[in-house]
Nucleic acid binder design. Structure first.
Length: 898
RNA sequence: GGGUCUGUAGCUCAGUUGGUUAGAGUGCGUCGUUGACAUCGACGAGGUCUGCAGUUCGAGUCUGCACAGACCCACCA
């Protein structure tokens, strides 16, 4: 008999199992002999940023997607999971800059070329780490299709899409007010700006002594660029000034201010009059457009005051503010300063305050009507893709549904998307300039004197193409044909649109919506049929996990090592619902580790119980001998269909719970116990076979390990060899079980459940009288006992020794050796009252004694503080006591019998 | 300011289209096990389903309001 350890030692086997899978080549569907008409199933992995390492959120993503992939692969579909990484331009550049700072360098000292080399190296190293970690999680993705948003093929896709958009007039260049990060020295998209509430001063002042009324501002330094003052048209105080142009000398700088009316002005805020600075405020910019105001730029790209503002020029924004306030005070123009709370816009990457300023940038026009969308805009088309469906597809389904609403409102309010960034690391714009000429193309233009635009593209531009760009194998696969992007590969035909996009809800707008935009436009098709959004993985206290909080932060690799990857995966899959955050902590993982141990021990029992144990894929009705066989097999087939339906509907947690209930409460607790007395190895082999298959997508390692071992035992070959021509004995590519209706036996289920219930009642007193429920079932199965007798047994009542409640009680029966009929007669003939009194007295004494000892020993403080030796000794003592008590109880029982 | 979500046992959460006595896991208490299972089993305690009102024969579930919390969007001169 093989030596099997009592617990599953995850970290001993996992790497080996992964290697076995990987070497089989079956992560790649091309290596599986599938029928031509096999259905296709594809997921494109949300590419982790190359900035860092795997965190619990990525582990969640991998667990869910691998579950889906393994389930569908086992269903015989042509299944592929395409992995990749994202260059994450701003984030990665910042990360490398931080490292440089430690060396006392910065990117300008290094120069662009050297800097980019370093970034590339960093990205490559990081990618290696990410791959290693994804493998540790058991991810069954096809590494031969690995993609990177900056590799040659993906870059080619980016250029093609950019050109296509430019030619369609969807991409334009213009000077517009943008969010500028003075530290990153780049623009930011609207949704890359975050807000922080802060306390700040609001100043109420006059531009100069002659100006007719007061205005309020939190940013006096921008007032150098004011070209108008806006008031509410209904405001009686200022009505008479509307339309006037007033000259003013503002702290030494001459201004010409037009008084305009705008309904957006709040009469009750400040003085009700607002100084309009078109160049440095989003709202003011829009007013300036409407009223054709002059635009005066005050602040430059380093957040310093520009030339021609006298003594303020060259000063930083903060310095200029102080000096202007000082100057106003000096001139007696400052009426008052109050403290208020407002929102400061900051860069989402580096938290530096944003300066809105006008800049020449590239934009995607989301409102332009385009012919190929039947005269509809991108915005309208993408709205319909989820609402009604486009291009003959069903509507894209967002799970959970409530996020659809968010999507619609976002899409509705979408404004032109600024795609150019002044970041070094990223896709360079495929745009060249010569004098006044502009050339946009996939390849650089012929002829001299062309210079390429120095800007790079927003990182979401390339990740927006992800579902189809990953389907190309080489740049030549990508071309523009009939106003669309053409990807000329088998993968594209087979796998696009992908089945599902799975990601965390926080990038619904950043990424998911952008993918819908870019794909509907570029390919003329939807990128995916379903969107599954998982929640945020949080710590015990509900806070976001972060390395800066090491006491609650969980590194997935640490816990995988400690408890096994399977337990970690289960902890992320069970007890969670889509779109809702989940709290995770070690105890949770530990509990699920116990379940993995349970499965392991089910297998261990199988091997111990029968030296000839083998897994069986099928069982016939004739093979089911006892009632318990019929019951468990029937239950199993119910579970198979329920779990399959749940998985189809993305109810992973529910499926897991049902499986857990079946495995633990029905298979292990009942069937295995009965099996000890009456063996049916064929049924046992069948049950384990199915249980392993059902659990495999949830916990691939332990199930594969057991599967392998079971076959090793059978064939006595070590190690078993697998080849592409012989995929048979690898669980990963086994067929997913199908529920066999013929094996569902409602009658047997009902009969067994009744029995369970009755035994449950008898069981209540099992602890005192050592009645083994297995024996009752066994006796029933062998027709020693019939249902009526068992029912009677369940009804026989004695008073509980503690006098709490009436409990069914049966005295001293040995079900197997004894004749149950006689036993029952004894039970019925007992003088209940007399028996009660005698027993009560004796038992009360005993219970008292026991509780005293147990109390002492179960005292946690005592156990925790005491050295192990002492606790050990006391345990021995306890056992001595128990022995004594036991023998006394036996005595009592005998008395009772007489 | 606009919107979304959440509130169920000490803790973490399920609860499908309204339908018997509101569930699971964990924790706690008691007892029993140590020959598949550094475990496991049985039993027990623990809930005004945040509150109020409404619809209904019937509400954890639907509606309205209130309270508490989380998040998203817009944005404050």
């Amino acid at each position: 008999m093989p030596e099997i350890p009592k617990t599953y030692e995850a970290n001993k086997y996992e790497d080996g199992i992964y290697k076995l899978w990987e070497e089989s080549g079956f992560f790649n569907p091309d290596n599986l002999k599938l029928p031509k008409n096999a259905k296709n199933y594809s997921i494109v992995m949300p590419p982790p940023n190359v900035t860092g390492v795997l965190h619990m959120g990525s582990a969640m993503m991998l667990a869910v997607e691998d579950l889906l992939i393994r389930y569908n692969r086992m269903q015989g579909k042509r299944t592929v999971w395409i992995p990749g990484t994202d260059h994450a331009s701003i984030a990665t550049q910042n990360r490398v800059e931080k490292d440089l700072k430690k060396e006392g360098l910065d990117r300008h000292i290094l120069g662009k070329k050297e800097f980019l080399k370093r970034v590339e190296k960093f990205a490559l190293d990081s990618q290696k780490t990410i791959i290693k970690q994804a493998k540790k999680m058991g991810s069954s993705c096809d590494w031969s299709r690995l993609a990177y948003t900056m590799d040659e093929t993906r870059s080619c896709a980016v250029k093609n899409v950019f050109k296509l958009m430019y030619d369609d007039g969807l991409i334009y260049r213009g000077k517009r007010i943008v969010n500028w990060c003075p530290r990153c020295h780049s623009t930011l998209a609207n949704d890359e700006v975050e807000y922080e509430t802060q306390k700040t001063k609001i100043y109420t002042f006059k531009y100069d002594a002659n100006f007719p009324f007061l205005i309020s501002t939190t940013r006096p330094e921008t007032k150098l660029g004011d070209t108008a003052v806006a008031v509410n048209p209904k405001d009686e105080r200022y009505k008479k000034f509307i339309g006037q142009k007033i000259k003013a000398n503002f702290v030494g700088i001459p201004l010409e201010l037009e008084i305009i009316s705008d309904r957006g002005v709040d009469m009750n805020f400040g003085t009700g009059a607002l100084g309009v600075t078109p160049a440095h405020s989003m709202v003011d910019w829009k007013m300036a457009q409407k009223n054709k105001l002059r635009i005066i730029e005050v602040i430059d790209e380093s957040a310093k005051i520009k030339e021609s503002f006298g003594k303020f020029s060259g000063k930083s924004v903060a310095e200029a503010r102080d000096e202007i306030v000082e100057e106003l005070k000096k001139r007696g123009l400052l009426e008052k300063e109050d403290e208020i709370e407002n929102n400061l816009s900051v860069c989402y990457r580096c938290s530096t305050p944003i300066e809105p300023l006008p800049s020449l940038q590239w934009f995607v026009d989301v409102n332009k009507k385009i012919n190929k969308f039947k005269g509809k805009s991108i915005k309208e088309t993408c709205f319909q893709a989820v609402k009604k469906g486009v291009f003959g597809n069903k509507p894209i389904k967002i799970i959970p549904k409530r996020f659809e609403k968010n999507y619609f409102t976002w899409m509705d309010n979408l404004e032109d998307w600024c795609v150019s960034r002044q970041i070094w690391f990223g896709h360079k714009l495929p745009v060249w300039y010569k004098d006044e000429e502009i050339y946009v193309g996939v390849k650089s233009p012929k002829g001299n004197n062309w210079t390429q635009d120095e800007d790079t593209l927003d990182t979401w531009f390339s990740s927006g193409l992800w579902t189809f760009s990953t389907m190309a194998k080489k740049p030549e696969d990508i071309s523009i044909e009939k106003g669309k992007i053409k990807i000329d590969t088998k993968d594209f035909k087979n796998f696009h649109p992908t089945a599902i996009l799975e990601t965390m809800y926080d990038i619904l707008f950043f990424w998911v919506a952008r993918m819908i935009i870019m794909t509907t436009y570029g390919i003329g098709d939807i990128p995916f049929q379903d969107v599954y959004l998982h929640g945020c993985v949080r710590d015990k206290f509900g806070d976001k996990m972060s390395k800066s909080k090491p006491e609650t932060n969980i590194d997935p690799l640490d816990v995988c090592d400690k408890y096994g990857t399977d337990a970690v995966r289960l902890s992320l899959l069970i007890g969670t619902t889509p779109g809702n955050d989940l709290k995770i902590y070690e105890e949770k993982i530990q509990n699920l580790r116990n379940f993995v141990t349970k499965i392991w021990n089910i297998y261990r029992y199988c091997i111990f119980s029968s030296p000839t144990f083998i897994l069986t894929s099928d069982v016939r009705k004739e093979d089911l001998k006892s009632l318990s066989d019929k019951w468990i097999v029937s239950q199993l087939n119910n579970v198979i269909s329920e779990v399959s339906i749940d998985l189809e509907n993305y109810k992973f947690s529910l499926a897991g719970e049902k499986l857990q209930k079946f495995t633990w409460d029905e298979l292990a607790s009942w069937y295995l116990e009965i099996h000890k007395l009456e063996k049916n190895d064929k049924v046992l082999g069948y049950l384990l076979d199915k249980v392993l298959k059902l659990w495999h997508p949830f916990m691939p390692f332990v199930t594969e390990k057991i599967w392998q071992d079971a076959y090793k035992t059978k064939f006595k070959v070590r190690p078993l060899k697998f080849s592409r021509s012989n995929p048979g004995k690898m669980l990963m590519v086994e067929k997913w079980p199908v529920s066999d209706k013929k094996l569902i036996d409602k009658k047997a289920e009902k009969e067994f459940q009744d029995l369970q219930e009755m035994i449950g009642k008898i069981r209540n007193i099992r602890s005192s009288y050592h009645i083994d429920p297995r024996k009752i079932i066994n006796a029933y199965s062998n027709k020693i006992l019939n249902k009526e007798i068992i029912e009677k047994l369940a009804r026989v009542k004695f008073s509980d020794p503690k006098g709490q409640k009436d409990r069914p009680l049966e005295s001293g029966i040995d079900m197997v050796s004894g004749n149950s009929k006689i036993v029952l007669d004894i039970a019925e003939s007992i003088d209940i009252e007399k028996e009660k009194k005698n027993l009560e007295k004796e038992i009360a004494n005993l219970e008292n004694l026991i509780s005293k000892i147990e109390c002492l020993l179960n005292n946690k403080n005592f156990l925790a503080s005491a050295p192990r030796e002492i606790v050990g000794n006391n345990k021995i003592k306890l056992n001595e006591y128990r022995e004594k008590i036991k023998s006394q109880k036996e005595l009592l029982k005998n008395i009772a019998k007489l």
